[in-house]
């Protein structure tokens, strides 16, 4: 993908061409590198994922590459180098998120309920009892991830739990059908909070696995960055979500593109002024800007072409 350059409305905090080039280089590096970490694990525990077109596997690698870019920014903002170990943590985290999302989205309502119940047991008792190849892969990846940090660190465990609770609420809200009526403001706010929490807590889980300590001011800013990622993501997935009857804040607001633009500017402004000056902040802003622009485009494309579950968007 060619660098998008400065967006007309982002002049005030556009990190500039040097950061755009760096972002391109990192994407290239991580897209090439995540397979080195994940392919052996997938081959050993869920080899069917590597058969045929490998659509799922390729989507998993793309998500993991993105997590690495975000993780890279998180580590640098926290004052640490994104070394090989962190690269591995980012890759495992991406794969873990991909598999968790697939349990929720791809196997029907009963499987979703079963997964949430068993994940709850894993978090409260440590027992998961993997039944399928995919579950074994998920368990091994999660276990390897947990082995990289003291999982009983108060912030790590709170972030993991909060993420789980947000996922659970998201699933419950999917059942909220509007039956042709507009959602009440309170319901819309609930959807917005749910989106905020899903990715806000997720980026804190990633940060908590990458960094030995999270300062409170860092924690808040990264939470905002995570929330923005989810608003952007939900806008990009608008048509596929509607197709599967899934309600999100972004597919229920009256003018989603305008709403997203407002959210984007508000969040980026806070990040630009609140995060310490440096390469990490610039990288995060460059990533979010590109994610915003590509998801606006994805939304427009899918409105015309329809939503394919296996289409991979950079």
């Amino acid at each position: 993908m060619a660098p998008l350059g400065g967006h007309s409305a982002t002049v005030g905090w556009d990190p500039g061409p040097r950061t755009q080039e760096r972002l391109n280089a990192l994407f290239k590096r991580y897209r090439a590198g995540v397979g080195d970490c994940l392919e052996p694990i997938v081959r050993q525990y869920n080899p069917t994922m590597l058969e045929g077109e490998q659509d799922e596997y390729r989507k998993m690698l793309e998500l993991s590459a993105k997590m690495n870019v975000v993780g890279h920014a998180c580590a640098e903002i926290g004052g640490f180098e994104y070394d090989e170990r962190r690269h591995m943590i980012g890759s495992l985290f991406g794969a873990c998120c991909f598999l968790a999302d697939s349990f929720i989205d791809d196997f029907g309502e009963e499987a979703t309920r079963d997964y949430l119940e068993r994940l709850g047991t894993l978090l409260t008792e440590g027992w998961f009892d993997p039944k399928t190849e995919r579950e074994r892969l998920f368990f091994v990846i999660a276990a390897r991830l947990f082995a990289e940090r003291d999982v009983l660190h108060p912030v790590v465990r709170q972030a993991v739990l909060q993420l789980y609770m947000a996922q659970k609420q998201d699933v419950e809200l999917r059942a909220t059908r509007k039956y042709g009526r507009r959602l009440a403001r309170a319901q819309l706010n609930m959807l917005k909070r749910c989106a905020r929490n899903r990715s806000g807590h997720a980026i804190l889980v990633l940060s908590a696995f990458l960094l030995p300590e999270l300062r409170l001011d860092y924690l808040a800013r990264m939470f905002w960055a995570g929330a923005l990622i989810m608003y952007i993501d939900d806008h990009g997935d608008c048509w596929s979500d509607l197709k599967s009857n899934r309600l999100t804040f972004m597919n229920q607001v009256c003018d989603p593109e305008r709403t997203l633009k407002r959210l984007f500017h508000a969040h980026i402004g806070q990040l630009a002024s609140g995060l310490p000056d440096g390469d990490g902040r610039d990288l995060l802003i460059a990533f979010l800007t590109r994610y915003y622009l590509t998801r606006i485009e994805k939304h427009r494309q899918q409105r015309v072409k329809g939503a394919s579950p296996w289409a991979i968007y950079e």
């Binding site: 440590g126 465990r157 739990l161």
Partner: peptide
């Protein structure tokens, strides 16, 4: 292993509002 510490977290002396 119990990762869930939500009960204790609620009883912590301080609460940080990440939002």
């Amino acid at each position: 292993l119990r990762i869930d510490n939500s009960e204790r977290a609620r009883q912590a002396p301080f609460q940080f509002d990440a939002a």
